[in-house]
Amino acid sequence: MGIQFDEMSNGIIMDVLREIGNIGAGNAATSLAQMIDKKIDMKVPVIQLLDFDEVPELLGGPENIVCGIFFKFEGDITGSIMFVLDQKSALNLVDLLMPRDNPEFDEFTVSALMEIGNILSGSYIRSLSGLTNLQIKISVPSLSIDMAGAILSVPAIEFGQLSDNVLIIQNEFIETQEAKSVDGYFFLIPDMESYDVLLGSLGVTL
């Protein structure tokens, strides 16, 4: 646990997370396409370091109701991963998997979202595992539908231990046939003690 969190090491850590996020997003799009058996286009992920206050603005402001799907991962490294969607994107995503006449936020939607979240997060973790040669497995998901500010406080607090910024990976998936688009936001948050294992596995020393 020799990591010193200063400006320089924060920069390196953020670069590493950025790269992992980029690769993970590509794999997540592939998994999504396989799951719904339709062609999925993915825009180049937008990866940003934002101030705490700017994060909820991406999702329509702190009081806008959004859907967060949260996982813990454990193994050689531990941490958490969160996937956040606004309500429209969440319904679009479920609709791609299982088209319905009057899509609404019911129990079916919630369990479908947990399953989709599971598959997308699993593909993120698999890319991370492949890249680092570390053994990592993820927990079952926990889902919350609530104010964006409240849901995003979870990754903000985790990142808050080392920085005044939050690293956010924005993915836009577009199903080409019906042109339904899904805007999703990923947060990949290793626990503090896992940073040196993660960075070491990638050959990065601070």
Binding site: F52, D53, G61, A150, I151, S153, V154
Partner: peptide, 21 residues
């Protein structure tokens, strides 16, 4: 988030979407 403010009468203060904070 991670902010603080002080006001005097008659103003009021608000913070939106508190979660684990």
């Amino acid at each position: 988030m991670a902010d603080l403010k002080v006001v005097e009468h008659p103003d009021a203060l608000t913070t939106l979407g508190l979660g684990s904070c």
